[in-house]
């Protein structure tokens, strides 16, 4: 009986672990859309990236620094991964753990990119990285890399204090 309890606890523990590793949320475009349309005082920094994207991985540490610096303000960072769904367990989660990413990571997985890229921004060719910064009074989109300095300049001007 005691053994059974130990085994049971062990299984619960393992189940808990695997649950933890699977808690990354996967959205299709329609489910993701509300993140782009919040009409609040909070300023959102939404970065489209992937673990295989060299310039994305390169700029991430500066995004993380910004996230740490602004987290006490009306500010929220969302790292939207475009990693293949099949690579979430093998590439994305190990990457997040290895780099100890603090900003929230979600996955946008929707094959119909010909439609949703334009809906996110007409000027976006689909190349990543790409970044949106917005609040209810302000909107900014950029295709290509951004530095901490770029981000700071925009945030300091537009964040609600």
């Amino acid at each position: 009986m005691k053994n059974l309890k130990i085994i049971g606890t062990f299984f619960l523990f393992v189940a808990g672990l695997s649950l933890y590793s699977q808690q990354i949320k996967v959205f299709n475009y329609e489910e993701f859309k509300p993140f782009l349309e919040k009409q609040t005082d909070t300023t959102y920094v939404i970065n489209f990236w992937a673990t295989w994207c060299i310039p994305c991985v390169k700029e991430l540490p500066e995004f993380e620094e910004i996230n740490a610096e602004y987290k006490t303000e009306k500010f929220k960072m969302l790292l939207v991964s475009l990693d293949f769904k099949s690579q979430i367990q093998n590439s994305l989660i190990p990457f997040i753990n290895e780099k100890n990413l603090q900003a929230e990571v979600i996955v946008l997985s929707d094959p119909n990119s010909n439609v949703w890229i334009n809906k996110i921004n007409k000027s976006w060719s689909g190349a990543i990285p790409a970044t949106i910064i917005y609040n209810k009074d302000f909107y900014f989109f950029h295709e290509g890399s951004m530095t901490k300095k770029d981000l700071k300049k925009i945030l300091n001007k537009n964040i609600k204090r």
Partner: peptide, 10 residues
Amino acid sequence: FTKAIGCSVK
């Protein structure tokens, strides 16, 4: 004319 996600040209 269509769009797709892809790796940026380096």
